[in-house]
């Protein structure tokens, strides 16, 4: 009976993911935070590629190492890759702002897989989106990897670790990690955009102007991302606490009942 119940819950979640993706993705046009093709001058675009490259390489190396140690790691990477891909191209209407934007999902993957693998996942998701979904650009991919992948993953990971170190509840730590990962992404996007397009203008006023413009949409969306991250961490805690221990999200004594 318990197995049947668990199976139907899995199927329910499965259907929910597919249906939600289908409905939400077709609700409004696919415009969001990724910096589009040609917005950044070539020198700035190249600089962001240089900044992003070591993180992507470290992610590749870590993925190779972990996959060789434990095969059970693979489904979690697959799940997170799908989640980050869907979430980061899912335009969500924000009624208080009247605009659409998307969460990033890298806070969640940063917590569960570690920040470097999360950067790699973000890079793959951004590449597919830039190639086939007219969402972000190929030349600006370095900047998008740095904002969404690097800053999002590390902000989420470090926030979660710091709060857990302070013995903060799992769901609150997950929530704060998701929230700060999202906001860190958009703060970085503002900095990238301001530095790239400013010309002779001063950097700081332009940076604040762009950041303030992001606030109406991204403030509530960050809260949504926090809730999603907390939900995923708690769900995995209930379904696969052993996996969270393996990934060092939790200590073994924290799941011992």
């Amino acid at each position: 009976m318990k197995v049947l119940h668990s199976k139907s819950a899995v199927q329910g979640l499965y259907l929910l993911v597919v249906t939600t993706s289908c409905i939400v993705l077709t609700v409004c046009e696919a415009h969001a935070m990724h910096i589009s093709e040609g917005i950044l001058p070539l020198n700035w675009a190249a600089l962001w590629f240089v900044v992003a490259a070591p993180f992507v390489a470290a992610g590749l190396q870590r993925l190779k190492k972990l996959s060789a140690i434990d095969l059970s790691f693979k489904p979690l990477v697959g799940l997170m890759a799908a989640v980050v891909f869907i979430i980061s191209c899912m335009p969500i209407p924000v009624p208080s702002a009247g605009t659409c934007s998307h969460p990033c999902g890298t806070g969640m993957s940063g917590i569960l897989l570690g920040p470097t693998i999360s950067v790699l996942i973000a890079a793959v998701a951004l590449l597919i989106q830039a190639l086939f979904l007219a969402h972000g650009g190929l030349s600006t991919m370095g900047a998008d990897i740095v904002s969404m992948g690097v800053m999002g993953s590390f902000a989420g990971y470090l926030t979660f670790k710091a709060l857990r170190f302070m013995k903060v509840n799992l769901s609150i730590a997950g929530f704060m990690a998701g929230l700060l990962a999202d906001w860190a992404t958009y703060i970085t996007t503002s900095a990238e955009l301001a530095s790239g397009i400013r010309g002779d203008s001063a950097f700081v006023p332009l940076f604040w102007k762009i950041l303030i413009a992001f606030i109406p949409t991204q403030l509530p969306l960050g809260i949504l991302e926090g809730a999603m991250t907390a939900g995923m961490v708690v769900l995995l805690y209930k379904k696969r606490p052993d996996l969270l221990v393996k990934m060092r999200v939790l200590k073994p004594e924290e799941i011992a009942i």
């Binding site: 935070m33 917005i39 009247g98 650009g137 413009a213």
Partner: peptide, 26 residues
């Protein structure tokens, strides 16, 4: 209404500073 923030923020500021988005590869 319901404009994406790449239109309402990114492209808007870029245009103000003389940068326009190019057509994607595909």
């Amino acid at each position: 209404k319901w404009q994406g923030i790449d239109e309402s923020v990114v492209k808007k500021f870029a245009k103000e500073h003389g940068r326009e988005a190019k057509e994607p590869l595909i």
